[in-house]
C-alpha cells in the first residue's frame, strides 16, 4: 500500500474557475503532475506553466508529499 500524501495545489487565473484557488490534494504515492491534472479534470493543453516549490517543471514531474504545485494557463492575447 502506497504512502498517503498531501500536495498543495494553486490554480492561477481561469484554471480556478469552477475549482479552487488554493486546495490540498490528497493522494497515494508515485504521483506526477499529469495524475493531478487528470483528477482535477484539467486537460494538459489548459496548462502552460507548471511550478513545483517554485521550480519550473514538466507535466511528467513527480510530486512529493508536502510539495506546492502551481499551475498557470496559457495567455496569448495582445
Amino acid at each position: 500500500m502506497g504512502v498517503f500524501m498531501k500536495v498543495t495545489v494553486k490554480l492561477f487565473a481561469s484554471l480556478c474557475s469552477g475549482r479552487f484557488a488554493v486546495g490540498v490534494f490528497d493522494g497515494g504515492a508515485a504521483l506526477t503532475v499529469r495524475d493531478i491534472l487528470k483528477s482535477l479534470n484539467i486537460s494538459e493543453g489548459e496548462v502552460s506553466i507548471i511550478f513545483i516549490n517554485g521550480r519550473h517543471e514538466d507535466v511528467s514531474a513527480a510530486v512529493r508529499d508536502g510539495d506546492t504545485l502551481a499551475l498557470f494557463p496559457p495567455v496569448g492575447g495582445g
Binding site: G45, S48, V59, P73, P74, V75, G76, G77
Partner: peptide, 14 residues
C-alpha cells in the same frame, strides 16, 4: 519556448 512548451493551440485563455 520554455514558457509555452505545454501549449497545444495558438490561443490561450483570451
Amino acid at each position: 519556448q520554455k514558457m509555452y512548451r505545454h501549449s497545444s493551440g495558438d490561443r490561450g485563455v483570451e
